[in-house]
Computed example of a mutant assay.
Amino acid sequence: MTLKPLAVALCIATLGITGCASKYVAPEEYSGFLKNYMALTEEKSPSGAPVMRWIKPGVDVNQFNSVYVEPSQLYPQPKPTEKIPQSTLQGITTYYDQVLKTQFAKALPLATGPGPGVLVVRPAITAVSASTKGLQPYEVIPIALIAAGVSTATGIRDQDTSIATEAAFLDGSNNEVVAQVVRKGAGAELDNSSQVMTASDAKAVLDGWARDMVKSFETLKGH
């Protein structure tokens, strides 16, 4: 196990004692999907949720007259589990694609690919977890750790579900990154440790993420 997953595993193992969980995604939880994390700062989304975000200084979003939403990725590629099967993982990305297109279509016409005047949205789901209720409500187990078999989903108490995303926003004319965001959220509560997580358990979180992304864009557009 590399140093980064090891650090997160140790954090998970000591939940409730060290209080290492945070509403913000910690650097050791970054997936590597984004090219540069150094400039991310703690911010609040339009809905007031904690996010790690960077927006290119001086960027003029009025240059974009359409938007292309790339198919969302699962990154790193996870190994399905009994608790979180492949159907759930696929359902989450499918729904994320759908809701991003629905929300962004309210602000800009949808494009069929990148190009001049096109804002490219490149999203990824970087963590999905189901952990025993009462530990830490915002702790996220990175997909890489689920693939390695690290899980706190034991016992018969109710389960909290969590999910995290990383997204880059690019200028479709030159592939330059103009904004990045990293955030996580709590999904629907499961009845017990034997209940399988479904994509529906994450829909409210995905809806909120998409709405916030579009509101952030509209705020920049109005400046």
Results as ranks from 00 to 15, higher is better:
T161G: 05
G149M: 09
Q77Y: 04
A105H: 07
L34M: 13
S162M: 14
E166W: 01
A186F: 09
M1S: 14
E43F: 03
I84S: 04
Q77E: 13
L3V: 02
V181N: 04
L220Y: 04
M38T: 14
T154K: 11
S193M: 03
N174V: 02
D207I: 04
K203T: 06
S151M: 05
T94H: 14
S87C: 06
Q136Y: 07
V182Y: 00
G187S: 13
N65Q: 10
A210V: 01
V121T: 01
N36W: 02
V51N: 04
G187D: 11
D212N: 10
D60T: 01
T152L: 12
N36L: 05
Y37N: 14
A179K: 02
T18P: 03
Y96A: 13
Q195E: 12
G222A: 15
L6P: 02
V67I: 01
V59P: 03
D212G: 07
M38Q: 15
V69L: 11
P123G: 02
C20H: 05
T81E: 06
N65V: 04
L40K: 10
T14P: 00
G91Y: 06
D60F: 01
C11F: 02
D191W: 04
P114R: 06
L40H: 07
P116M: 06
C20S: 10
T2I: 06
Q86D: 14
R157S: 15
T152F: 08
G155L: 10
A144Y: 02
Y37T: 08
L190V: 06
A124H: 03
S162R: 13
T81V: 04
K79Y: 04
Y68V: 00
F104Y: 13
A179L: 01
T132M: 15
W209H: 09
A144W: 00
T126K: 05
Y138R: 14
A107D: 07
K44T: 07
G134H: 10
A130D: 06
M1G: 13
R157N: 15
G134E: 12
Y95A: 13
P57W: 01
F33C: 10
P5N: 05
G113R: 12
Y138P: 02
T88E: 10
V121A: 00
P46G: 15
G16P: 07
A204G: 09
S22A: 15
I12E: 11
S72T: 09
R211D: 14
H223K: 15
G115I: 00
G32Y: 12
A167D: 02
F33H: 11
V196A: 03
S200I: 01
A13D: 09
R211V: 10
Y37Q: 13
A21E: 13
A168W: 01
F64M: 05
P57H: 06
A186R: 15
L34P: 08
S216L: 06
Y68S: 00
E166M: 06
F33Q: 09
S87L: 07
V150K: 10
M213C: 03
L89N: 10
N192Q: 09
A7C: 09
K106Y: 01
V8L: 11
L15E: 03
F169Y: 08
N62E: 07
D207C: 09
V205C: 12
V205I: 11
P109D: 14
S173L: 01
Q98Y: 08
R53G: 02
A111F: 00
S45T: 02
D207P: 03
A127K: 07
K106E: 04
V140L: 15
A130P: 00
T102Q: 14
G155Q: 11
S131H: 04
Y96G: 11
K215L: 06
L15Q: 07
R157E: 15
